[in-house]
């Protein structure tokens, strides 16, 4: 049933454009994160709209990456980390005991700060997710998935002759797009991006931003970024974090043109951070 619902969303999404009045894809309520005794996030409340790009900005150590990693429970891999509050994906509590983290991460893909292709061929990198989730019927089907994912990540043309060469042999920007293709291959609803362009040069960054723009039509994207220009370019909604608090959230236009909070204003004006 879940699957049909997702497909339906995907089909209708391009028409509806930016979600207006629709139920948010992800809702976070009173989220607190602790590393051991130290608290890293304080009562964060945030709605992530469907089929749009939400940017999380703020100075280093403000908790934006920590919040992002809560959305697919990546923080589970850190033994001392503890999360309280409630995060819902399509009105389903993702920290619910009955919800499976493996299933969640298949639905909420992630792209990391540094491109991290597996030391395998390009093909195997993409095929990895579908294979472990048992999404593959046969060989031709798998090839189809790989090609489609690479196409969607705008990489197919560049690598179609060498899909069986190691993914680590690509350039930095290509590697990052490979990681995005890898995430797409498991058919997620949401893609989390943790500063995806911080290790890339401007040209590669432009390509990735273009890609994000295209992906928005089918996916809900949450992106953490250091660059305010990037947030402005790619996102429809922006949330500003500061030392563990969510200070201000709103339409990107409004945050950059007319911030309500003094701290947001200072940060955007480049007074700190």
């Amino acid at each position: 049933m879940e699957q049909i619902a997702t497909s339906a969303t995907a089909e209708t999404a391009p028409m509806s454009g930016v979600a207006n009045g629709e139920a948010p894809k992800v809702t976070a309520r009173d989220v607190c994160v602790f590393y051991g005794a130290k608290q890293a996030l304080f009562d964060v409340n945030l709605d992530v709209p469907r089929n749009s790009v939400t940017a999380l900005i703020g100075p280093s150590g403000c908790g934006k990456s920590t919040f992002l990693r809560c959305l697919n429970r990546m923080n589970d891999t850190i033994p001392i980390c503890r999360v309280t509050g409630k995060i819902e994906l399509d009105e389903q509590d993702i920290y619910d005991r009955d919800l499976d983290v493996v299933e969640l991460r298949a639905r909420v893909g992630m792209v990391f700060q540094k491109p991290n292709p597996f030391p395998k061929s390009i093909f195997d990198n993409i095929a990895y997710g579908p294979r472990i989730h048992g999404l593959v019927r046969d060989k031709t089907h798998l090839e189809e998935i790989v090609e489609t994912s690479l196409e969607k990540a705008g990489l197919w043309k560049e690598v179609k002759d060498r899909v069986h060469e190691p993914g680590t042999g690509l350039s930095g920007g290509q590697q990052q797009r490979l990681c995005i293709a890898r995430a797409i291959a498991t058919t997620p609803d949401v893609i989390l991006m943790d500063e995806p362009c911080s290790a890339l040069d401007p040209i590669a960054t432009a390509k990735v931003e273009e890609l994000i723009h295209e992906l928005r039509q089918n996916y809900t994207i949450v992106i953490v970024t250091h660059s305010m220009q990037q947030a402005r370019r790619v996102s429809q909604k922006t949330a500003f974090f500061h030392i563990g608090y969510l200070v201000e959230v709103g339409d990107t236009e409004q945050i950059f043109e007319n911030p309500q909070d003094k701290r947001t204003q200072d940060y955007i004006m480049g007074r700190f951070g």
């Binding site: 891999t77 299933e103 992630m110 472990i132 890898r182 498991t186």
Partner: peptide, 19 residues
């Protein structure tokens, strides 16, 4: 980062280790 990449795709721990 390789482990995280795999977890991020929804692999279990043993799948991440083995593959």
């Amino acid at each position: 980062s390789l482990r995280e990449g795999s977890y991020g795709l929804g692999a279990t721990k043993s799948e991440t280790i083995r593959k």
